[in-house]
Nucleic acid binder design. Sequence first.
DNA 1: ACTGCAACATACGCGTCCGTATGTTATAAA
DNA 2: TTTATAACATACGGACGCGTATGTTGCAGT
Lengths: 192, 192
Amino acid sequence: MNKRNRLKAEDWLKQGLETLDNEGIHKVNVEYLARQLGVTKGSFYWHFKNHETLIREMLNYWARTLTINVIERSIQDSKDAREIFFKLITIITTEKVGRYEVAIRAYARHDKKARSTIRKVDQQRLLFITGLFTDMNFKQADAEVRARLALYYQVAEQGIFLKESKQKSKDLLKQRFDLLTTNHESIDKPGC
Amino acid sequence: MNKRNRLKAEDWLKQGLETLDNEGIHKVNVEYLARQLGVTKGSFYWHFKNHETLIREMLNYWARTLTINVIERSIQDSKDAREIFFKLITIITTEKVGRYEVAIRAYARHDKKARSTIRKVDQQRLLFITGLFTDMNFKQADAEVRARLALYYQVAEQGIFLKESKQKSKDLLKQRFDLLTTNHESIDKPGC
DNA sequence: ACTGCAACATACGCGTCCGTATGTTATAAA
DNA sequence: TTTATAACATACGGACGCGTATGTTGCAGT
């Protein structure tokens, strides 16, 4: 909230994503969001041109906070690629940042701009994670396969699997990490 | 179509599922479906009580044709469990029968009855496939793990992975089949 | 105290969708 | 040929969502 309890555009974006995740795209309409925020439509059309703009900015907001922000946080206080990768999948798995993933992919099935956003996000992620694996001395092709495995897993985990206990989630994360970061047959050591 | 080009309830259900898959749940409304079928609402309310009934019957129709029907077809002309399993994943992967899978799961995120339907379908599938693996002499616990892997894969394949060529899809199917149906360490042979 | 403006609220017309009530038509049965 | 009815079409009232036009309010600066 802003000063005097008045709203910023970001408050509408957050509420939009929250509602998309909780109740579906059909509930992401101007009047319903206004009711949830305790204001009227007049407020909305002050901050946004129209409904379409809201959706577009929601997608951009999600893409920004989810890719750049998470990547930057993973890099901070990490000394090497292995550590960055571990922090990355930990953040995605344990924090709420991955919550909107499934909802947005579901919406993107029938929205061209959403699909475009997701493609860009996926490519950014893939490039970054592939880079981490090459930094771990994996060959380029192998690095990309491992990056894809990590990426697809993170996406599918939220959409398909039943919710596990916190301890089991941690165990699975560790196993996944070990599997993906160790394979001595395909490693590309400069000394050999 | 029926005699004299008039519609059956099933025609509405099919069009409903098609529209759900192609354009999303918000397009699955009475007047839009009527336009697509070349009739008016009067026809709809002859065949169905209301919109809610349509959705419910769509889910039931999907559950029937997808679980029972596919299972029965897999069994036909198969001599053992291995063959049934291969036919099953072949049908799901190559035919259009798996097309509505992702759309319905997306819709189920915010519809209680849809979630209930999916749970039942998943359980039926899991029971059946687990039975196939126990018939292949895998131990109960191992059979269930393999069944889950097969099941989750079939679901995730449609929603996440990029579309591969027909040849690559066939190769992947074969590899998946081999991996899941052979593991001599955990096999439970009566003779040993 | 007065003014200006950001951030709303209110009121309206419009289109779309729902569900109902009632009118229409082609065909099968008599 | 008449009749009954299945399968529609038409017309309506109401709810809801969009976007616009305009009215209102509280604070910030002077």
